[in-house]
Design a binder for these strands. Structure first.
Lengths: 183, 183
DNA sequence: GGAACCATGTAAAGTGTTACATGATTTT
DNA sequence: AAAATCATGTAACACTTTACATGGTTCC
């Protein structure tokens, strides 16, 4: 239900094309909300049909034409209403990696260790991405647009991502040490 | 795709009914994989049709009859194959709460604080649940069944949950302090 | 007397992924 | 010469949720 609000949230800052929205999501909300272009384009059409956003086509030379969407007054109302709805509980997530570990008890030690080491690599890479790619990007957006308050929120969320990744990396290191002591 | 493997994983330990599987999931995999009964029952039928599990009906007095499923040799092969598939990357999750915070930059300070405080309550409750409900439950299952190795995996995963929740609670406390300094 | 638990399911709607389809420009 | 980027979309499929449907037993 929230891909709609993700798009409204970004369009509330300034008009963009579907393609731009996808790239933005890849660099900002990726870790806690993502979508494919094949979901974004139809959703934009629906939002336009509902009057929450509006679009115009911009012809381009040497590149395909682009359809630029902007939020409407009605869309802003919808966004505000959604933001006001409380999120009371902790939303349960999905993690294939943890599920596999959970059911790995009957496997051989080496297979468990392989799984844990692969995860360690992946989470170290994600930690690096948050620090080296996302952090400068947040800073750049703030500098460009002067959206100070928005920038603070983006940085806040990024900071949580970094802390959680660090926690996960530490846990994996401990888990590997423990698994190494298995028979 | 993994509800199938979740069910296979549990049935690999011992036979159970759909209803029991649901309760088990609520108390163990909940935080990283969950499902409704309306998804579990049809999935069990599919798995049986595929020959990965088998069932028999147990008549009961004073209670509805129960259909008890057990894993087959073929099912065990499928489970092993799934466990062996590597999970290379960090799987992106979905969090409405973070998404709302991310787009809250243009709201008033008080609305942001309300959101953060509600989240703090929710995550403190989840931390308590992991310590007071899940930890003893893992210990009880291990004591009952003597599944030492499985118990270690369950405890490992629970431990990550606890560490991440603690990290999140700390972050929320910091975030609230920061938000309080806003104009 | 009402709520929660035990126990099973189906149908419809909503959400998200994969595959298909096109085609010029720019970078490696 | 191949790969990536820009740019848009559709169709089919897979997965998940919500709502509907039933009915006895046990706890408060």
């Amino acid at each position: 239900m929230s891909i709609r609000h993700t798009l409204l949230g970004f369009l509330n800052l300034r008009p963009r094309t579907g393609y731009e929205l996808k790239k933005l999501m890849d660099r900002s909300t990726q870790a806690f909300w993502h979508a494919r272009l094949s979901q974004i384009y139809p959703t934009l059409k629906v939002l336009e049909a509902e009057g929450l956003i509006a679009s115009r086509v911009e012809p381009q030379v040497g590149k395909p034409d682009r359809r630029v969407y902007r939020i409407t007054a009605q869309g802003r109302v919808e966004l505000l209403e959604w933001l006001a709805e409380p999120v009371a509980h902790v939303e349960p997530g999905k993690s294939t990696a943890l599920l596999k570990l959970f059911f790995s008890g009957f496997l051989e030690r080496e297979q468990i260790l392989t799984h844990l080491r692969r995860q360690l690599d992946a989470h170290r890479a994600e930690l690096a991405r948050l620090r080296d790619e996302i952090a400068p990007m947040v800073a750049a957006v703030v500098a460009e647009t002067g959206l100070k308050r928005e920038g603070m929120m983006w940085e806040l969320v990024r900071e949580l991502g970094e802390r959680c990744e660090r926690t996960t990396v530490n846990w994996l290191e401990d888990a590997i040490r423990e698994a190494e002591r298995l028979a």
